[in-house]
Amino acid sequence: MAVISDDDKIICRCEEVSLGTIKDIVHHFHCSSREVKLRTRAGMGYCGGRICRTIIEKVVQDINNEKVSNESQLSYRPPIRPVTFGQLGGSGNDDES
């Protein structure tokens, strides 16, 4: 029976970035999770990376043989929930994204 390859499974749901893509980028550029994010958009989707960031960091750290550091590489940036221009203007209306 054929062995299913896992490289096409999605890691970042928002941007549909696969495990294979992340692995390739890390191997090719020997880079950090921050750079992976900039090169692939993994972690930059609608959810702000809330769902995929821990896995991305883990995959990158595993490949690079690093230990988890205290300060996370994929920092959060405001707004942590998508907002409309109206809200940024502080008009206090009811829609939420």
Binding site: Y46, C47, R50, I51, D95, E96, S97
Partner: peptide, 20 residues
């Protein structure tokens, strides 16, 4: 948390279905 459920309500607002 994931925003996967976002939908448009009443022609304008995009909301999370699970919180609305």
């Amino acid at each position: 948390h994931c925003f996967e459920c976002r939908v448009r309500v009443n022609e304008e607002n995009i909301v999370r279905a699970c919180l609305t």
